[in-house]
């Protein structure tokens, strides 16, 4: 069964080992722009990023730097103007369940219950009724929603809705999970609980994730690798570095505050800090 949890191992092990396989998700000199009031403006230009199997990559960047554009390219919602976006080495042609997106909000179908929402995704994937039910129950239990399986969306809190989205995404076992600020609309306490649950699942599944956020603490808690973007029209990758802290992490875990501070400094583009961190990070 596709939902069985794999044995736990340190998340960074796979990506650290030299693997000949192509990256799970790869942006290869991607340019994407939009026709706006002032003619064509690039959102991303010559954008390069490889995400390895089992890796959790966080893109952090200011508003308008092209984070969502990158995610939409990976999801197949938009096509690159030039360059290529590859999943397992194959170019992406259209949206598909192998690259499931967790949206910021309002992405559940309100005429369905929590479980029916998960089941519908499995139905689209061609699973039999019985399997739909077993798999959706399993994942809803894992996100601690077994008591709310039959609740309609309007009866769920914001945090519960995002849990259902998580359950739905994991249930169809995508190659890459794409997440665009999925926790941004939640309060800090709910977020902290979700970070814990989410990491537990990740440690079991070793799911490959591309995660977008404004929040540097969130990046420090969740990421194996942080990619800091900056600028706009086009946005560019300013720096990236690995986060090798033990999991599960929380706000209080040693090292998290430092990583968050470093990310913030990179975001703010403080040259002094950039130089200081340049030695052990991979600043560009």
């Amino acid at each position: 069964m596709n939902f069985r949890l794999r044995p736990q191992e340190p998340p960074s092990a796979a990506s650290a080992a030299p693997t000949p396989a192509p990256p799970k998700l790869s942006f290869s000199s991607v340019t994407k722009g939009f026709d706006g009031g002032r003619g064509w403006t690039p959102a991303l230009e010559d954008f390069n990023l490889d995400i390895q199997e089992g890796e959790f990559v966080c893109i952090v960047g200011p508003s308008g730097c092209g984070k969502t554009t990158a995610l939409n390219l990976a999801a197949g919602f938009v096509r690159p103007d030039s360059g290529a976006v590859l999943v397992d080495g194959a170019p992406i042609a259209r949206p598909g369940p192998d690259r499931t997106v967790v949206f910021q909000e309002h992405a559940l179908f309100p005429w369905l219950t929590a479980r029916q929402n998960v089941q519908l995704a499995l139905e689209f994937a061609g699973k039999k009724k019985k399997e739909q039910e077993i798999v959706s129950r399993f994942w809803l239990r894992l996100v601690h929603l077994e008591k709310f399986q039959n609740a309609y969306v309007h009866e769920l809190s914001g945090g519960m809705k995002q849990r259902v989205q998580l359950a739905r995404s994991f249930a169809i076992n995508p190659r890459v999970l794409l997440m665009d600020e999925p926790f941004a609309a939640l309060d800090a306490l709910t977020r902290e609980v979700l970070y814990g649950e989410f990491q537990q699942i990740l440690m079991g599944t070793r799911q490959t994730v591309l995660f977008i956020t404004h929040n540097t603490q969130e990046a420090a808690i969740l990421a194996d690798r942080v990619v800091v973007m900056g600028g706009a029209h086009p946005g560019t990758i300013k720096a990236e570095f690995r986060v090798d802290l033990p999991r599960p992490r929380s706000f209080e875990s040693p090292g998290v505050a430092e990583i968050a501070g470093k990310t913030l400094a990179l975001l703010k583009h403080e040259p002094a800090l950039l130089d200081a961190e340049g030695a052990n990070g991979e600043s560009r």
């Binding site: 999801a75 919602f77 949206p95 369940p97 690259r99 997106v101 179908f109 995704a121 994937a125 739905r168």
Partner: peptide
């Protein structure tokens, strides 16, 4: 967003 979600889910 419903169209997007549906297409995304296949």
């Amino acid at each position: 967003l419903y169209f997007r979600t549906a297409r995304n889910l296949g």
